[in-house]
Amino acid sequence: MNRHKNIVFHVALWLLVWSTAWIFSGSDFQFVLENGMVLIFQIIVIAVLIYLTVPYLLLRRKYILFAVASIAVVVGLTLILTNVIPWSGGMVNEPNMGTLPGPRPGPRFDGGRPLQELRRPPSRFFINLLLITIAYIIATLVEIFLFAQRKEEEIIINKNEALQTELKLLKSQINPHFLFNALNNIYALSAIDAGRTQKSISYLSDMLRYVLYECEQEIVPLYKEIDYIENYIKLFSLKSSKTYPISTTFSIEDQNVPIVPMLLIPFLENALKHSNIEKIEGTFINLKITSFTDGIDFELENSKPEHVVVKDDVGGIGIENVKKRLAILYPDRHELVINETSKAFKVNLKLRLHE
Score class of each variant (00 low, 15 high):
350 K>N: 08
191 A>T: 14
296 I>M: 06
209 R>H: 10
313 D>H: 05
2 N>H: 15
91 M>G: 05
311 K>T: 09
47 A>F: 09
54 V>P: 07
60 R>V: 05
280 I>T: 15
195 G>W: 05
23 I>N: 10
25 S>K: 11
278 E>W: 02
259 I>L: 04
106 G>E: 15
100 L>K: 10
289 I>V: 05
33 L>D: 11
85 I>Y: 09
297 D>W: 00
156 I>E: 07
302 N>I: 04
262 M>S: 07
208 L>H: 03
289 I>A: 02
236 F>M: 06
241 S>R: 14
340 E>V: 11
22 W>A: 08
199 K>R: 15
24 F>H: 12
288 K>T: 10
281 E>I: 03
298 F>Q: 06
340 E>L: 02
240 S>T: 15
311 K>F: 01
124 R>C: 05
77 L>A: 03
261 P>A: 04
56 Y>H: 14
59 L>D: 13
233 I>E: 02
51 Y>D: 02
44 I>D: 04
79 L>G: 07
71 I>A: 14
132 I>A: 07
1 M>R: 09
255 Q>M: 04
321 N>G: 01
144 I>L: 12
303 S>A: 01
159 K>G: 08
297 D>H: 01
140 T>M: 12
296 I>C: 06
314 V>Q: 03
4 H>G: 14
350 K>L: 02
15 L>I: 12
235 L>N: 08
65 L>W: 09
118 L>C: 08
58 L>Q: 12
181 N>W: 00
214 E>C: 06
328 I>D: 01
65 L>N: 11
84 V>P: 02
107 P>H: 15
121 P>G: 09
8 V>K: 12
279 K>H: 11
148 A>P: 06
318 G>P: 07
271 A>I: 05
31 F>G: 05
333 R>N: 13
243 T>K: 14
336 L>I: 11
107 P>I: 14
116 Q>N: 12
123 S>G: 13
209 R>Y: 11
88 S>H: 08
342 S>Q: 14
202 S>N: 10
230 E>Q: 15
103 P>A: 15
125 F>W: 12
175 N>H: 01
45 V>Q: 06
83 N>V: 10
89 G>F: 11
305 P>V: 00
79 L>C: 13
